[in-house]
Design a protein around this nucleic acid. Structure first.
Lengths: 117, 117
DNA sequence: CAGGATCCGGATTGATACTG
DNA sequence: CAGTATCAATCCGGATCCTG
């Protein structure tokens, strides 16, 4: 019975995790969201902040994030046009997850520096 | 100054996140770890639990996880041989992260069911 | 400035068959 | 049972050029 409950919950967990991984799949999505959690940003800002990303990948991943309602895209009628990306309230609910990730990552970096022990 | 601090911390965050994503990259790694957080398991167990994964991918990702010291691999001298995978104490420190992920994923699933609003 | 279109090589992944 | 080998399909991501 206890055994069964554990197995049940394991399945659910795996499905849920798979959803998250699908949503955040791609080399850059989490970094982009993390960036936008700090501030709304323009395309060129992101291109600079998310080091290593190419223009093509940035637009592509932004588009997917927008489709999943995690960010919004606003065209500003400046000359020339600028586009501002902003995290949605829904996207902001990822902040805790990303924070946990960053924490673990920072500890992991230290561990690596200490010889991976 | 406040601005600068924020920018600084943003950079660090992104690097740390990138580390985590690298470590957990691949469609299945997080699911595998989540599984092993519940219980130690044999290869065939994992093949069943992590739905959709192929044998090739399972061995490959297990190998990488082992290389990163997140899990251990133990060959049992049964007939025929069985292999048991188990999470390491270090791997277990990912449990909170994975828990957060699973929580978010479950909420996301509900949201999707409700029409994605 | 923001991003679409195209091309292309390389990496990922799946299916299937095979091994100790 | 726990993998490995091989082939084929697909995806990823960079470079370059082009548009409004």
């Amino acid at each position: 019975m206890e055994e069964e409950k554990s197995r049940e919950s394991c399945c659910q967990t795996i499905l849920a995790i798979h959803d998250v991984m699908d949503l955040l799949s791609g080399k850059w999505k989490v970094s982009i969201i993390a960036c936008l959690c700090f501030n709304k940003m323009r395309y060129s800002d992101l291109l600079r902040e998310v080091r290593g990303i190419s223009g093509k990948m940035l637009s592509r991943e932004l588009k997917e994030l927008e489709a999943n309602q995690l960010i919004t895209r606003t065209v500003l009628s400046t000359q020339p046009v600028t586009v501002e990306y902003q995290i949605t309230p829904y996207g902001a609910t990822l902040e805790q997850l990303i924070g946990t990730m960053a924490d673990w990552g920072l500890k992991h970096r230290k561990r690596i520096k200490n010889g991976g022990i």
